[in-house]
Amino acid sequence: MKRTHLPLNGLRVLDAAARHLSFTRAADELAVTPAAVGQQIRALEDMLGVVLFRRTPKGLELTPETEAGLDALRSGFLMFEEAVRAMQVGQSSLSLTIAAPRDITAKWLQGQLAIYAQGQTDLHFSLVAADDILDFTEANLDLALRLTDGPGEHEGVRVGTAAFVTVEAPQGGSDRLIDWPGSPEAGEADPFMRVADAGLAIEAAANGFGRATVPLLLASRDIAEGRVAQVGEPVESARGYWLVAPLPQWRQKKVKALVEALKGSEAP
């Protein structure tokens, strides 16, 4: 019999009825009706081609066929329980694997994780550098942080505001354009400098190479510390930073707790 065709519900009913030698008490344990227990047993007998119980004046009796399989059946259910417990270990684990672009990891995420980890000595993080979402299962990811316009196919919540801001060196003095792949101005003009990401664009602006338009969440700490100066007001954008994960990961207690802590953290 193929594993996919194992009549697990029927076997569960068989185990309960065999322990109690009573369809009524088995039904009470399983929170179903005695008639439903009888139907499951008859269906199982039809599938297996054996008689599982005999009715006698004293009540139900197990047939030799049932007795021959009961020990293995109960061992199997114990192994199922062990398998479920093993799969649930990750729920109580305090190890989190997070994928995020390098720039937001360096300029925002690490600082927030340090705050979150205070007093939690058993907490461990693995940070994966990724501009695009990796395969969550293949990479064993719990959570990802993306600059995007929404959660896409996954569950998600935005952190901070979806706004971009233009920054330059504190002393100002140059309106030359610093471009990066996600810049709102990408491709609109001939930039003075092109860099790989918004974090490098902020560094270039801080070093006096010109002005860069970057996500406000990414630049908040540098603005607050005076490393760069803000030019004008932030501009709302369709894109912001989103914490995302498939539903199974999203439901984990450790992921829920981290998301709650991060989603309210906007500025340093």
Rank of each mutant, 00 (worst) to 15 (best):
I178E: 03
R55C: 12
R221P: 14
K256G: 10
D28Y: 12
V13E: 02
R176E: 10
R176S: 12
N140S: 15
E225K: 06
G119V: 06
G172I: 00
A35F: 11
K254I: 06
A162S: 14
A205K: 00
V157G: 12
A86K: 06
I115Y: 13
E65A: 14
D179K: 01
S92P: 13
L243V: 04
E225G: 02
M193V: 10
L243Q: 00
V167T: 07
L14S: 05
L21E: 03
R42I: 05
G49F: 05
T97D: 07
T121S: 15
E67K: 10
P57F: 07
E266K: 12
D15M: 15
A27Q: 00
T166L: 01
G208E: 04
G150D: 09
A130Q: 03
L109F: 03
L21D: 12
A100Q: 05
S237L: 01
W180T: 05
L145P: 07
L73T: 03
Y116W: 11
G172V: 02
V195A: 03
R227S: 13
G49V: 06
S220D: 12
E155R: 10
T105P: 09
D135K: 04
A18R: 01
A27G: 00
R54W: 11
M193H: 11
S75G: 11
P248W: 06
T56M: 08
R85Y: 08
R25M: 08
A36N: 03
K107L: 15
A163C: 11
K2I: 14
L96P: 02
A16L: 06
R42W: 10
R211G: 04
V244Q: 00
A130W: 02
L11G: 02
P248G: 12
D71R: 14
A18Y: 06
L200Y: 12
L258N: 02
A219E: 01
T148L: 11
Q112E: 11
T148I: 04
E29R: 01
Y241S: 05
D122S: 07
E67N: 12
E153V: 15
A99R: 05
S174L: 11
L78V: 08
L30R: 04
L218A: 07
Q112R: 13
M47F: 11
R42V: 08
L70Y: 01
A130K: 03
R227V: 14
D197A: 08
L44N: 05
T148K: 08
K256E: 12
R227W: 03
A238M: 14
A212E: 02
G173V: 00
Y116I: 04
E65N: 13
A139W: 07
Q171L: 09
A189T: 10
A17I: 00
G240A: 01
N9E: 15
T213M: 09
T213S: 14
A261W: 13
A224N: 06
T97N: 02
F136M: 00
P170M: 06
P57S: 10
V128C: 03
V32Y: 01
E61H: 08
D71F: 13
N140F: 12
L21T: 04
D28E: 15
I98D: 00
S183I: 10
V157C: 10
W180I: 06
L73Y: 06
R227N: 07
L73G: 01
D190L: 15
G10V: 07
V255Y: 00
V255N: 03
G10M: 00
L94F: 09
R19I: 04
V50G: 09
G208L: 02
D103I: 05
R74S: 10
H20D: 08
L30F: 04
A229F: 05
S237C: 10
